[in-house]
């Protein structure tokens, strides 16, 4: 009984961490990527993607809690983070940082 409870608790903890921490990282990455893709002056694109970042965060959190297992959620987050990082690397003009 206690073992099952502990397992349940750990699963919930893992999923919450995926949602809060993983979601935070992914939404920052997505928003940064969007800020490079938007066809407007840098100030405006950064300002707009900052405002949109919370929508991304919200969608990611809901998705994380909607997946079948916590493992799947982590895997999905990892893939999304890698894709958006690669996208960001390609979108960034050379030597911009």
């Amino acid at each position: 009984m206690n073992n099952i409870k502990l397992q349940m608790g750990l699963r919930i903890l893992s999923r919450s961490m995926a949602a809060i921490v993983g979601g935070y990282v992914l939404s920052n990455l997505l928003a940064t990527l969007i800020s490079y893709l938007l066809p407007m002056p840098k100030v405006d694109s950064v300002l707009l993607s900052l405002q949109l970042s919370f929508l991304f965060y919200c969608m990611v959190i809901i998705w994380v809690f909607g997946t079948k297992t916590a493992g799947k959620a982590w895997l999905g987050l990892l893939i999304a983070c890698v894709i958006s990082s690669v996208g960001l690397y390609l979108a960034m003009p050379e030597g911009s940082l």
Binding site: S27, L50, Q51
Partner: peptide, 30 residues
Amino acid sequence: VFLMFSSMPGVIVGSYGTDKEKYNEFVESV
């Protein structure tokens, strides 16, 4: 949105770098 400059610094850093002066430049132009 009010607090996004503090809560989502990654987006600003991703475009303006970690330089404090560049950050100020961004905020001032907003």
